[in-house]
Structure formats: structure tokens, C-alpha cells
């Protein structure tokens, strides 16, 4: 299950449709708060989140998850180039930092690698 967090409805819905045509299962959230409320360990295999959101930002969400769900692969999407935030996100372990508008093939490759990392990570944990 892939979680999508974006406060822009049109982007959120478009992402959900794209994931559906890729045959991924997904659940959408309009902010970091509702996502954290629904989040449980191992419930989600991958998180796709917007960087700039009302309330909690994507980076703040990432910080929360480092303790709660450190193995959850995160893909950032942002409408801004934001080089500093990009660096911080990747240093903190993000799988990818994609700039809007997002190409479907690029997103697909990053989701696959994220899911692989999740499954590899899980293997690591189980060892």
C-alpha cells in the first residue's frame, strides 16, 4: 500500500489515478496530520509526499517518521526547486526528490526502487 500526502486535491487525485493504472494500491491524505493519524508500522510500503503543505511540511513529516517508521521509503514531490530542502530530504534518507510536473515513467521507477528497498530493508530487519 502506497500513501499519498498532498494538500492540493487535483494533484492528489491525479497521483491516485496514476498509481491505480500502475496497479499499485494507494490511500490519499490531504495533510501530514491525517496521514499520521492513520499510520501504523508496516501499514504502508511507500510514502509519496508534497514538500510544501499547510500545517506540517514534508520535511517535518519525514522527521516524525524517522522515529516512528524509519524503514518507510519516502518520495518527495515539490513544485519548487528548493535545493536546500532537496539536500536535507535526501540526507535524511529520502528515496527521491521529484520536481513537479512529474513524469509517469520516472515516478514508476522510483516507486519500484522504493518498494525494493522496503522489502530489502524488511529482510535486513528480519535477519
Amino acid at each position: 500500500m502506497i500513501a499519498v500526502v498532498d494538500d492540493d486535491k487535483s494533484v492528489r487525485d491525479a497521483l491516485a489515478e496514476l498509481l491505480e493504472v500502475f496497479d499499485f494500491k494507494c490511500q490519499v491524505f490531504e495533510g501530514a496530520g491525517p496521514f499520521l493519524a492513520a499510520h501504523t508500522l508496516d501499514r504502508f510500503d511507500c510514502l509519496i509526499t508534497d514538500l510544501n503543505m499547510k500545517g506540517m511540511s514534508g520535511l517535518q513529516l519525514q522527521q516524525k517518521l524517522t522515529s516512528a517508521d524509519s524503514g518507510l521509503p519516502i518520495i518527495f514531490i515539490s513544485a519548487q526547486s528548493a535545493p536546500e530542502e532537496r539536500l536535507q530530504a535526501l540526507r535524511s534518507g529520502a528515496v527521491a526528490f521529484l520536481s513537479k510536473p512529474i513524469d509517469d515513467d520516472v515516478l514508476y521507477r522510483h516507486i519500484i526502487s522504493a518498494l525494493n528497498r522496503r522489502s530489502n530493508g524488511s529482510t535486513d530487519v528480519s535477519i
Partner: peptide, 25 residues
């Protein structure tokens, strides 16, 4: 300019993804 670019990129982003998804269908 930063926030203007951000605001225009949101619908453009949705357009691109919806069009690509549509093509796949």
C-alpha cells in the same frame, strides 16, 4: 515569483499526470 511558480505548477502537474494516466488506459 516563487509562490506564483508554485501555484501554476500544481495544475500543470495534475494535467500532466492525468494525461499520462489517460494515455496508459
Amino acid at each position: 515569483t516563487t509562490s506564483i511558480a508554485h501555484e501554476i505548477k500544481q495544475p500543470l502537474s495534475a494535467i500532466l499526470m492525468n494525461a499520462q494516466t489517460s494515455l496508459r488506459y
